[in-house]
């Protein structure tokens, strides 16, 4: 079943397009030192200082910042942290959603009541403001707090969806059979239930990764990230703080946002494809 899904995933045009875009970004991140002409924080070459606030030229394809950093190189290096934070946060969020949803849905009873309650509270607490509040308290500015804060505030939606799905699957014949045969809970959950919600899990991963990428950029944009690391979010922060817009320096704030959007789109495409593949109703009538 999982194999069939993967096969369909590669046949589906949307999924394939998404996968290609994502791979390009990953390659960009991996080989950044080879692709980028300069380092992200390099403001001179062979003793020759880079111009400040330069517009695009043959030396600096996307111009330079007010500190003389090459924006094209920053854009390429920026993919590293952005991707890392996005995917890692997506994984952690999915993991939390999945474990909470699986056990709450499968165990039912009091455990489920308590978890569902907490879950519902988290659902109605608006997450971005909460993230901003928490991040504003944390003295350490960096990638780790961002990942933790985003993951801890982002799991509620996913676990609710998983729980609902597990509840319906739990009703099915084969789970009942496994229970009667005295299988351990853990085994039932992992061997019988998990494979049946694999497409849901993928959808949650894609969705939470998009949310994380946007969330990261947002936090950094308001200055709640580590502004000395180079990411697409901090690039936008510096652009905004140096009034790039009013200086008509589109090469500073346009490309990072565009890349965030395209990266997000690649996940959205895959997410969409999963939906198409796993929801037979989309094909109907």
């Amino acid at each position: 079943m999982i194999k069939d899904m993967l096969k369909l995933f590669f046949i589906n045009k949307k999924a394939f397009a998404g996968l290609i875009i994502l791979s390009l970004f990953i390659l960009m991140a991996l080989f950044a030192p080879m692709i980028a002409p300069y380092g992200p924080k390099q403001n001179e070459n062979d003793g020759e200082k880079f111009p400040l606030m330069a517009s695009p030229s043959s030396e600096h394809i996307l111009g330079t910042t007010n500190a003389g950093y090459d924006l094209y190189s920053q854009l390429i290096y920026g993919s590293r942290v952005t991707l890392f934070v996005g995917i890692l946060t997506g994984l952690i969020t999915t993991f939390i959603s999945l474990s909470v949803g699986l056990f709450s849905g499968y165990l039912r009873g009091t455990v489920d009541d308590v978890i569902s309650f907490v879950n519902n509270v988290f659902l109605v607490i608006p997450s971005l403001p909460l993230v901003i509040v928490i991040a504003s308290y944390i003295p350490m500015r960096g990638v780790l707090p961002i990942i933790l804060v985003l993951a801890l505030t982002g799991w509620a939606w996913g676990s609710r969806v998983v729980r609902a799905q597990v509840l319906t699957i739990g009703e099915r014949e084969f789970i009942k059979v496994a229970e009667v045969m005295g299988e351990k809970t853990v085994i039932i959950v992992f061997r019988e239930i998990l494979p049946n919600i694999i497409s849901l899990v993928m959808a949650i991963f894609f969705t939470s990764t998009i949310a994380a990428i946007i969330g990261e950029a947002t936090l950094e944009f308001i200055g709640l990230g580590n502004i000395s690391t180079v990411t697409w979010g901090t690039m936008l922060f510096w652009a905004q703080n140096n009034a790039a817009l009013l200086l008509d320096a589109w090469w500073w704030f346009l490309p990072p946002g565009l890349f965030i959007g395209i990266l997000g789109t690649s996940f959205a495409l895959m997410n969409f494809a999963i939906d198409e593949i796993s929801n037979p109703k989309i094909r109907k009538r």
Binding site: A217, L263, G264, A268
Partner: peptide, 22 residues
């Protein structure tokens, strides 16, 4: 819409300001 949804709000705002105000 799928495409637009993948961008951070604030960036879309920036773009609108840039093109339609600046």
């Amino acid at each position: 819409f799928l495409f637009i949804r993948s961008f951070p709000y604030f960036w879309l705002g920036l773009i609108l300001v840039y093109f339609f105000a600046f």
